[in-house]
Write a protein that binds this DNA or RNA. Sequence first.
RNA 1: UGCCUUAUGGUGUAACGGUAGCACAAACGACUCUGAAUCGUUUUGUCUAGGUUCAAAUCCUAGUAAGGCAGCCA
Length: 571
Amino acid sequence: MTTDSPAASPAPSDFIRDIVAADLASGACQRVATRFPPEPNGYLHIGHAKSICLNFGIAKEFGGTCNLRMDDTNPAKEDVEYVDSIIADVRWLIAGWADEVLRCKADDAPFFASDYFGQIYACALTLIHAGKAYVCDLTAEQTDEYRGAPDRPGRPSPFRDRSVEENLHLLQQMRAGAFPDGARTLRAKIDPHHPNVWLRDPVLYRIRHTVHHHTGDAWCIYPMYDFAHCLSDSIEDITHSICTLEFEVHRPLYDWLLQHLAVPSPRPHQYEFARLSLTYTLMSKRKLMQLVTEGTVSGWDDPRMPTISGLRRRGVTAAALRQFAIHVGVTKYNALTEVAVLEHAIREDLNTRAQRRLGVLRPLKVVITNLPDGHTETVPAANHPLDPALGTRDVPFSREIFIEQDDFAEIPPPKFFRLKPGGEVRLKYAYIIKCEEVVKNADGTIAELRCTADLDSKTGGATSSRKIKGTIHWVSAAHAIAAEVRLYDRLFTEPEPEADGRDFRTCLNPHSLETITAHLEPALATARPDDRFQLERLAYIALDPATTAERPVFNRVITLKDTWAKEAAKG
RNA sequence: UGCCUUAUGGUGUAACGGUAGCACAAACGACUCUGAAUCGUUUUGUCUAGGUUCAAAUCCUAGUAAGGCAGCCA
């Protein structure tokens, strides 16, 4: 119960899984092979997590495989740092769930589109021989000009009718480094007037004298996405190539290239689904990188980031993310999902797995006057209310304790059933106390509360069954450990940070991170990196890597639902 | 004055010509040594207009709205 995800839900169903099932049933394909093909130009985010869950999920459910492949055809934007982070994030997300369907190269490395540069180049030669590609000398600007616009037809390049021999010769020279960047391109010979802009003689190869993070200086020409992607899929025997909606208009090109290159049958087919959008969240790699470079957050793995590494560092589990992916589903509708769905998945997961602990975030000192000076005892506390097998631990209790400031009100609002002057409250696992006196500082703030305890009311005691409406958490002042706790809130104050063309920086939440020193029960001193705890009545927490031997650092993963906050807000 | 795609409660998602269901959110209640969790109840929906059919969320036509496409990015 503490390590497993919540009860497995029924296998998800969506239009893509329907297609896969139909293809298997009809014999269109013998087995299922999907792939997850990120470009290593940034860190993976929760939108990628949706795609990973889809691709690996399908492979798992249908007994197939899923390749992890770096779509690395643009050396100018890519880096090994991103390759490494992507591998780590994918492995973490699928660990214990679908890792057996992950297909890698022999050395356990991911596939790289750049490993196929030789084969892709050979395909370019094939297209030229077939009269289906030509070398074009137009500049980038001229190419744009000739291409026209979505509502304006293009016109043919003046280089469109070069001979096969000349094209062959020029491509070989391009490959040999005879021309500077941008001097020429290889283009498919399709239809300059086609209503679909992507079929107007798309560029297949461009010249880039740039060192590649994976192939070094072996190449100075690099294939474009459209050329490399369909071929990589074919080379890897992918059956279902699943991508996001913006590639829908590219599908005819994907099909054209594979048909004209007569790749082995059955050839892969592309299917598109809607990318994930979340309220109060930014989801573009470029914008996320901006948050990093401008120092708005501490890095790609800042726990406020929607990156997989940020969520992981925050304390969100892979199981919660997978459950979230099931909740949002897979469609072609451009949806905006409420973050509440993510938050629910996180709480649902943590509720079952997190052991309970006591801790006070904003302390208010309470002296229990009818206990002798120096009085100390321990009380047993349940580790998990849903799983008694997890047993109990002894929590030190003494004459002086801390309670939460919010749990006392000198002038209680309506329906406030916590501690108030003259009122009683149950200290969880311990005594019922009554507030006898409010001691104040010179400035009028509350210094401490002086209370008396019903000494027979201890859990299991003679008057322990007395019905007291309120139960609050506490920690022994002398025994509590000091720990840094980082309280996170959403990064933006608006559900759609970029609505109406607004700059997202104008709606950053100034309170997205608050760092406090909390008083935690001693058992939390031995927390380990993968542990998750629920601070009773407050929040789920997880250890941050910034923890040192002297000072533990915890991240608040997410608060508990707070019905009282809602009630209190009503006034 | 182009091409492609999409449209089901506040949000997301089912229903594959035959009772519009589920989840989140919201509201109320029960329970509670966590104002959590759990349990129960409730509110709110098929974009519009035509057509086909015994029967339409589903099929057809037209409209409307939203998204995508004019990188030598992916």
